[in-house]
Nucleic acid binder design. Sequence first.
DNA 1: TTACGTTTTCACACCTTCTTAACGCCGCTG
DNA 2: CAGCGGCGTTAAGAAGGTGTGAAAACGTAA
Lengths: 220, 220
Amino acid sequence: MSKALIIDDEQQMRRLLRMVLESRGYEVCEAADGQLGLQEAAFQRPDVVLLDLGLPGLGGIDVLKRLREWTDVPVLILSVRDQETVKVEALELGADDYVTKPFGTAELLARLDVIQRRRFTRQSPEIIAGALKLDLLHHEATLADEPVKLTPTEFALLKVLAEHAGRIVTQNQILKQVWAGQSSDPSEGLRVHINHLRKKLGESGPRIVNEPGIGYRLEA
Amino acid sequence: MSKALIIDDEQQMRRLLRMVLESRGYEVCEAADGQLGLQEAAFQRPDVVLLDLGLPGLGGIDVLKRLREWTDVPVLILSVRDQETVKVEALELGADDYVTKPFGTAELLARLDVIQRRRFTRQSPEIIAGALKLDLLHHEATLADEPVKLTPTEFALLKVLAEHAGRIVTQNQILKQVWAGQSSDPSEGLRVHINHLRKKLGESGPRIVNEPGIGYRLEA
DNA sequence: TTACGTTTTCACACCTTCTTAACGCCGCTG
DNA sequence: CAGCGGCGTTAAGAAGGTGTGAAAACGTAA
């Protein structure tokens, strides 16, 4: 059975979520603010976190940032409409999905299923984009079943691109996810690593195209 | 890894499909008629269903109808040529795609990829104004589902207009939101960017109308 | 310590995007 | 009618982003 952690300041919302989740078989724990949320996350080791963005004090974004410093636990964002900017920021920081309040329980459960399954498939882990296959467990990449030798940074970079294959990945997104929590300024080096990746992927493989001023896109 | 359910009465076809799918890493289960198919679907909870339209007894269309009463699982239709009417009916009932027998394995797998990805794609914050859609996370714009290539400034400008679609946006508002925190005086350049946007949106798309002396308005 | 692989920094050519300026059009006003 | 201001359009220079090669800094293992 999966364990879910709810971080939300409204008691009513917590009770509603608890009911929905428990009816689905989740084990549920709660936290009423960001500080407590982080403690519970560390102590309870939940399988999924439901995080409200409108927290008082330590905000939802900060909680997410701190969470991501030490865990990849799937995070589902709860937000109200017209928080577009914050939602973008949360997703860039590695949140897995979001639902907008008020939400239907069916939608909530569906999205939980998806991010749970994604995490589950990460235990027999591969990302596939066309002829490219990334084995996340062994940190190995193959292109048309031919092994490709990648450095750790290159692998992380290609992983971010492959996860969103076919779509633009913002430079911000890349920097936040590949160089998460590091002090150096990698904005210069990104170009170099992209260059290396393109060479290793060769002519026949997937192309990494640049969207000037925005980011990169991997197309199979 | 994903689980696929094959519903087809021909054993040969089931064996072929199983081979192709398993080689791609799918977990496969089968059903030889519609009745059994529905049972398997309920019991196995597959991630994708391959459904033959030419089933004896409980027909493919009926199976799809019954499936859709309780699940949105992606359904790929297998049909023979000259079943246009039935194919259309199936798509209207919520089938996700179809392949025509005999089919190439490459085509089959490609279509499976597409409908799987659609299901697993997470939600992106977006602004919608008529046929225009702005994906804020990926910085992608689509007009009637056709991608439109926008530069960063154009995207920001269109975002401001689309957020207040139908209403007037003051020049001051635009300048503050698009050129926030910049030193240059872009009041001249605004006209140029509006011009570019109008060209890229084309005749059929939303119009950007000018309110002389006030600002601009986006009307869908 | 050296040696090696990786990451970062730097320099420069090249390309896209942004800004600026100029000009013509239209509507308004004196 | 002539003058004026706001707008659309176009072109060209300025600014900034990108690709690429090489060298320096870094970390790690022998």
